[in-house]
Amino acid sequence: MDAIVEAALKKWPNVPHCHGWLALDARGDWYMRDDRIQAAGPFPQVKGSRIDHDKLKAFIARNYQADADGCWHFQNGPQRVYVQLEATPWVWRVQWPDGDVDGTPSVTSHTGLAAQVQGCWLDAEGRLYLSTDLGLGLVHSQDMLDAARAIEQGLWTPQPLDAAEAPRRFGFVRDPRP
Protein backbone atom coordinates (compact mmCIF):
# COMPACT_ATOMS: atom_id res chain seq x y z
CA MET A 1 0.00 0.00 0.00
CA ASP A 2 1.26 3.49 -0.81
CA ALA A 3 2.64 5.49 2.14
CA ILE A 4 0.31 8.38 1.29
CA VAL A 5 -2.67 6.00 1.58
CA GLU A 6 -1.49 4.74 4.97
CA ALA A 7 -1.11 8.33 6.18
CA ALA A 8 -4.63 9.19 5.01
CA LEU A 9 -6.04 6.18 6.88
CA LYS A 10 -4.47 7.45 10.11
CA LYS A 11 -5.68 11.01 9.54
CA TRP A 12 -9.27 10.08 8.57
CA PRO A 13 -10.05 6.63 10.05
CA ASN A 14 -13.85 6.76 9.74
CA VAL A 15 -14.51 7.52 6.07
CA PRO A 16 -17.47 5.45 4.76
CA HIS A 17 -16.75 2.69 2.28
CA CYS A 18 -17.82 2.95 -1.36
CA HIS A 19 -19.72 0.17 -3.16
CA GLY A 20 -20.67 -0.29 -6.80
CA TRP A 21 -18.38 2.38 -8.26
CA LEU A 22 -15.41 0.24 -9.39
CA ALA A 23 -15.42 -3.04 -11.28
CA LEU A 24 -12.91 -5.50 -12.74
CA ASP A 25 -13.84 -7.39 -15.89
CA ALA A 26 -12.65 -10.82 -17.05
CA ARG A 27 -9.86 -9.25 -19.15
CA GLY A 28 -8.35 -7.32 -16.25
CA ASP A 29 -9.77 -3.92 -17.16
CA TRP A 30 -11.02 -1.54 -14.47
CA TYR A 31 -14.36 0.25 -14.93
CA MET A 32 -15.84 3.29 -13.19
CA ARG A 33 -19.58 2.94 -12.57
CA ASP A 34 -21.23 6.20 -11.59
CA ASP A 35 -24.85 6.49 -10.39
CA ARG A 36 -26.22 6.67 -13.95
CA ILE A 37 -24.38 3.48 -15.01
CA GLN A 38 -25.38 1.65 -11.85
CA ALA A 39 -29.03 2.55 -12.49
CA ALA A 40 -28.74 1.31 -16.09
CA GLY A 41 -27.98 -2.25 -15.02
CA PRO A 42 -25.72 -4.64 -13.16
CA PHE A 43 -22.07 -5.32 -13.91
CA PRO A 44 -20.93 -6.78 -16.30
CA GLN A 45 -24.05 -6.32 -18.45
CA VAL A 46 -23.52 -2.56 -18.13
CA LYS A 47 -19.80 -1.99 -17.60
CA GLY A 48 -19.39 1.76 -17.34
CA SER A 49 -16.31 3.76 -18.33
CA ARG A 50 -13.09 1.83 -18.79
CA ILE A 51 -10.17 3.37 -16.94
CA ASP A 52 -7.40 4.08 -19.45
CA HIS A 53 -5.25 6.51 -17.46
CA ASP A 54 -1.98 4.64 -16.80
CA LYS A 55 -1.12 6.39 -13.54
CA LEU A 56 -4.61 5.83 -12.13
CA LYS A 57 -4.49 2.14 -13.10
CA ALA A 58 -1.07 1.82 -11.44
CA PHE A 59 -2.36 3.53 -8.27
CA ILE A 60 -5.35 1.17 -8.12
CA ALA A 61 -3.06 -1.83 -8.71
CA ARG A 62 -0.69 -0.85 -5.88
CA ASN A 63 -3.57 -0.44 -3.43
CA TYR A 64 -5.72 -3.43 -4.46
CA GLN A 65 -6.33 -5.97 -1.71
CA ALA A 66 -8.94 -8.12 0.01
CA ASP A 67 -10.51 -7.65 3.41
CA ALA A 68 -10.94 -10.49 5.92
CA ASP A 69 -14.25 -11.52 4.28
CA GLY A 70 -12.75 -11.91 0.78
CA CYS A 71 -14.18 -8.63 -0.51
CA TRP A 72 -11.65 -7.04 -2.85
CA HIS A 73 -11.18 -3.29 -2.73
CA PHE A 74 -8.99 -0.43 -3.76
CA GLN A 75 -7.78 1.59 -0.79
CA ASN A 76 -8.24 5.17 -2.05
CA GLY A 77 -6.74 7.23 0.71
CA PRO A 78 -8.96 6.72 3.76
CA GLN A 79 -11.80 5.20 1.72
CA ARG A 80 -12.22 1.59 0.66
CA VAL A 81 -13.68 1.37 -2.82
CA TYR A 82 -15.06 -2.16 -3.11
CA VAL A 83 -14.64 -3.87 -6.47
CA GLN A 84 -17.30 -5.82 -8.35
CA LEU A 85 -15.69 -8.82 -10.05
CA GLU A 86 -16.90 -10.23 -13.35
CA ALA A 87 -15.08 -13.50 -12.69
CA THR A 88 -12.23 -13.57 -10.16
CA PRO A 89 -10.05 -11.13 -8.18
CA TRP A 90 -7.08 -11.81 -10.47
CA VAL A 91 -6.69 -11.99 -14.23
CA TRP A 92 -3.55 -13.88 -15.24
CA ARG A 93 -1.24 -13.10 -18.12
CA VAL A 94 0.74 -16.14 -19.22
CA GLN A 95 3.94 -15.75 -21.22
CA TRP A 96 6.76 -18.03 -22.23
CA PRO A 97 10.27 -16.60 -22.33
CA ASP A 98 11.44 -15.97 -25.90
CA GLY A 99 13.09 -19.06 -27.36
CA ASP A 100 12.43 -21.15 -24.23
CA VAL A 101 11.24 -24.63 -25.16
CA ASP A 102 11.87 -26.48 -21.89
CA GLY A 103 11.16 -23.92 -19.18
CA THR A 104 7.97 -22.72 -17.59
CA PRO A 105 5.78 -19.77 -18.46
CA SER A 106 5.66 -16.69 -16.30
CA VAL A 107 2.31 -15.85 -14.75
CA THR A 108 1.61 -12.22 -13.93
CA SER A 109 -1.53 -10.61 -12.55
CA HIS A 110 -3.45 -7.77 -14.18
CA THR A 111 -1.81 -5.59 -11.49
CA GLY A 112 1.71 -6.65 -12.50
CA LEU A 113 2.43 -9.05 -9.63
CA ALA A 114 4.26 -12.31 -10.36
CA ALA A 115 2.46 -15.46 -9.22
CA GLN A 116 3.39 -19.09 -8.64
CA VAL A 117 0.87 -21.60 -10.02
CA GLN A 118 -0.43 -24.12 -7.49
CA GLY A 119 -3.42 -25.55 -9.38
CA CYS A 120 -5.30 -25.39 -12.66
CA TRP A 121 -9.07 -25.42 -13.16
CA LEU A 122 -11.41 -25.53 -16.16
CA ASP A 123 -15.10 -24.56 -16.10
CA ALA A 124 -17.96 -25.77 -18.29
CA GLU A 125 -17.55 -22.78 -20.64
CA GLY A 126 -13.89 -23.61 -21.30
CA ARG A 127 -12.47 -20.78 -19.18
CA LEU A 128 -9.16 -21.62 -17.54
CA TYR A 129 -8.38 -20.62 -13.96
CA LEU A 130 -5.12 -20.81 -12.04
CA SER A 131 -4.87 -20.97 -8.29
CA THR A 132 -1.63 -19.32 -7.20
CA ASP A 133 0.16 -18.04 -4.14
CA LEU A 134 -1.89 -14.83 -4.62
CA GLY A 135 -5.25 -16.56 -5.02
CA LEU A 136 -7.55 -17.68 -7.83
CA GLY A 137 -7.60 -15.92 -11.15
CA LEU A 138 -8.87 -16.34 -14.68
CA VAL A 139 -6.39 -16.72 -17.54
CA HIS A 140 -6.69 -13.78 -19.94
CA SER A 141 -8.40 -14.86 -23.17
CA GLN A 142 -5.43 -13.69 -25.27
CA ASP A 143 -3.10 -16.02 -23.36
CA MET A 144 -4.99 -19.28 -23.81
CA LEU A 145 -2.50 -20.61 -26.39
CA ASP A 146 0.37 -20.12 -23.97
CA ALA A 147 -1.65 -21.73 -21.19
CA ALA A 148 -2.54 -24.65 -23.49
CA ARG A 149 1.16 -25.19 -24.11
CA ALA A 150 1.75 -25.51 -20.35
CA ILE A 151 -1.10 -28.04 -20.17
CA GLU A 152 0.21 -30.01 -23.16
CA GLN A 153 3.67 -30.16 -21.56
CA GLY A 154 2.15 -31.54 -18.37
CA LEU A 155 3.06 -28.50 -16.26
CA TRP A 156 -0.60 -27.84 -15.39
CA THR A 157 -3.39 -30.40 -15.15
CA PRO A 158 -6.86 -28.84 -15.28
CA GLN A 159 -9.45 -30.06 -12.81
CA PRO A 160 -13.17 -29.36 -13.28
CA LEU A 161 -14.55 -26.23 -11.63
CA ASP A 162 -18.11 -25.01 -11.27
CA ALA A 163 -17.64 -21.26 -11.88
CA ALA A 164 -20.62 -20.45 -9.64
CA GLU A 165 -18.91 -22.27 -6.76
CA ALA A 166 -15.52 -20.56 -7.24
CA PRO A 167 -16.15 -17.66 -4.82
CA ARG A 168 -17.13 -19.96 -1.95
CA ARG A 169 -14.42 -22.49 -2.72
CA PHE A 170 -11.61 -19.95 -3.10
CA GLY A 171 -12.80 -17.35 -0.59
CA PHE A 172 -13.76 -14.23 -2.53
CA VAL A 173 -16.89 -12.15 -3.07
CA ARG A 174 -17.91 -11.10 -6.59
CA ASP A 175 -20.27 -8.31 -5.58
CA PRO A 176 -19.44 -6.81 -2.16
CA ARG A 177 -22.39 -5.08 -0.51
CA PRO A 178 -22.51 -2.80 2.53
Rank of each mutant, 00 (worst) to 15 (best):
D2Q: 07
I4D: 14
V5G: 01
V5L: 00
V5P: 04
A7S: 10
A7L: 10
L9M: 13
K10C: 09
K10L: 11
K10I: 09
V15N: 11
H17D: 14
H19V: 14
G20E: 05
G20N: 02
W21L: 15
W21T: 15
W21M: 15
L22S: 00
D25A: 02
D29V: 11
Y31K: 12
M32V: 13
R33W: 03
D34V: 07
D34W: 07
D35R: 14
D35C: 13
R36D: 15
A39P: 10
G41W: 08
P44W: 00
P44T: 02
P44G: 02
Q45D: 12
Q45K: 14
Q45A: 14
Q45M: 12
V46H: 07
V46S: 08
V46Y: 06
S49Q: 14
S49G: 14
R50W: 08
R50E: 06
D52M: 12
D54L: 14
K57I: 12
K57R: 15
A58S: 09
N63H: 11
N63Y: 06
Y64S: 10
Q65R: 15
Q65N: 08
Q65I: 01
D67Q: 11
D67A: 01
A68M: 11
D69E: 15
C71K: 14
C71E: 15
C71D: 10
H73N: 03
F74H: 10
F74K: 02
N76W: 07
G77D: 07
P78G: 03
Q79D: 06
V83H: 11
V83P: 05
Q84T: 12
A87I: 04
A87N: 03
T88P: 01
P89A: 07
W90I: 04
W90F: 12
W90E: 11
V91D: 00
V94W: 05
V94H: 01
P97C: 08
D98V: 11
D100F: 04
G103D: 01
T104E: 07
P105K: 01
P105L: 04
S106Q: 15
H110V: 00
H110W: 07
T111G: 04
L113N: 12
V117A: 09
V117H: 08
C120L: 02
C120Y: 05
C120H: 03
C120V: 03
L122S: 02
L122M: 10
D123Q: 05
G126D: 05
G126L: 00
R127S: 10
R127V: 09
Y129K: 02
D133L: 02
D133C: 01
G137N: 07
G137I: 00
V139E: 05
H140V: 06
H140Q: 07
H140R: 01
S141N: 10
A148T: 04
A148V: 09
A148N: 07
A150N: 02
E152A: 06
W156Q: 03
W156R: 01
W156L: 01
P158F: 06
Q159C: 00
P160C: 06
P160Q: 04
D162N: 14
A163L: 13
E165W: 08
E165V: 14
P167K: 11
R168Y: 13
F170I: 04
F172R: 11
F172C: 00
F172Y: 14
V173W: 06
R174Y: 03
D175F: 15
P176Y: 03
P178D: 15
